[in-house]
Design a protein around this nucleic acid. Structure first.
Lengths: 131, 131
DNA sequence: CTATCAACATATCAAACAAGTAGGTTAATA
DNA sequence: TATTAACCTACTTGTTTGATATGTTGATAG
């Protein structure tokens, strides 16, 4: 299951792409439009900003804006940042120590294949496809 | 993410298919072979039995056995039972009240398409493919 | 008919995570 | 220098996951 964090992140990126036009947009504007609490939204925008998908500017006239064109953001890049990983099982998470049973594991090939299906799906779509 | 419950369920179904040969297999045998605690395994076997994927018999000579051929079990049917649903987002879960924003929601089509990809993947594979 | 066996049932628990809240700090701009 | 709005840290609350413990029912063997 994709958590609300990831789902909100997609909606917010679309919001900025649609309403930004290269200008900075304030957090409270986005929160109001999307019906998300300002504080919760903030925790999501922090992730997107730290990950380089958004640029934040403080003070009057500040806000958030995209760092690239909508067509350059894959959904995978947004979800990986907010969900942590797209791996369907723990043993396939990047950085996980390889399971001892992996050699004889009858299910591992399915999870690997599934992981590829997921990745291909989300990396094959961009923000521009959703607008 | 697929939880351990679903992952164990797959492994257990494979175990019974491989070691059963139509006979009843005891829970503790499966637990030992798969390295799962007996009690935790029990909670999974209950789901599979109630869902009609396995048949349980009590007393001496009892245990669990498959109710059909391995090729007749899709991975989808096993995972849906143990994971509850394969829906990638809450608003697509069967029985969920339709979101008010669904008409204007820019992300809903992606989730629907993704849901189909997931379903097709797991319904397109059977236990027999894993043995 | 009784002891044993093994599935069935119910209740509880600790840890982790999701989702959301609260309050204070820094850096731009007017 | 005041205001603005992003940034940062910490906390709360509820749910889920994974697991454990104890007891009950029904089938079989002797």
């Amino acid at each position: 299951m994709i958590s609300t964090r990831g789902r909100y992140a997609l909606r917010v990126m679309i919001d900025i792409a649609e309403n930004g036009n290269g200008n900075y947009i304030r957090l409270d504007e986005i929160a109001k439009r999307q019906g998300i609490s300002e504080k919760y939204l903030e925790s999501i925008l922090v992730l997107l900003t730290r990950g380089g998908l958004l640029e934040g500017l403080r003070g009057k006239g500040g806000g958030y804006k995209l760092t690239k064109e909508p067509s350059e953001y894959t959904l995978g890049s947004i979800l990986r940042l907010t969900e942590g990983s797209l791996a369907p099982v723990a043993c396939l998470k990047e950085g996980a120590d390889t399971c001892q049973k992996s050699v004889s594991c009858k299910t591992l090939p399915v999870w690997k294949e599934y992981y590829k299906v997921i990745s291909d799906f989300f990396d094959g779509k961009t923000l521009a496809d959703l607008i």
